[in-house]
Design a protein around this nucleic acid. Sequence first.
DNA 1: GTAAGGATGCGCT
DNA 2: GCGCATCCTTACG
Length: 202
Amino acid sequence: MARRLTRSFFARSTLLVARELLGARLVCRVGEEYLVGRVVDVEAYIGESDSACHASRGRTPRNAVMYGPPGHAYVYFTYGMHWMLNVVTERQGVPAAVLIRAIEPLEGLDTLRRRRGGRGDRELTSGPARLCQALGIDRELNGEDMVRGSRLYFEASPGREELPVATTPRIGIDYAREEDRKAPWRFVVAGNPHLSRTRART
DNA sequence: GTAAGGATGCGCT
DNA sequence: GCGCATCCTTACG
């Protein structure tokens, strides 16, 4: 039985949590079925001083989960059609989270393919909205405790230390301040074929 | 009450 | 590479 990631894992620096989430197994249980993928692409969003973070304009009903205890899922809706999955980091009261941008499918491929309309295996979960669609994640899981809960959680994976990690600026945050747009707070497993698409940015 | 815009994906060119 | 879909959240009146 794989080791679950603990509360203390998430209650640390968001950059450290983001980097160390690479390689972990993301598990989503749907009834008897387990949908599993390896985390290969994440981004850190850190506090009210980060102009790209949803908490940059203070606490609202939408971002309230980020102000709560670490290890909970922050799931939000955007662009009129897309859900995004984050996991809350830092100590309670510090609004920060890691956005899960892409996973490499490991288990439950049939279900993932069905949910994604029969697309190719590299398009099942290679994007923050794609993986939510494939795993069936929506507002129902907002606030879910990913440390104690049984529907959505992370498992440690051996060999993480050997993964080739690359950093880049975060994606899709053109509205943020220049220093925040430039911050290398996206972490990816270099060369992995299941990374999310990186769009041009300045 | 209402308007503006978004941590994206997809289809078409 | 570009434009649009689509609706929730927020800010403001």
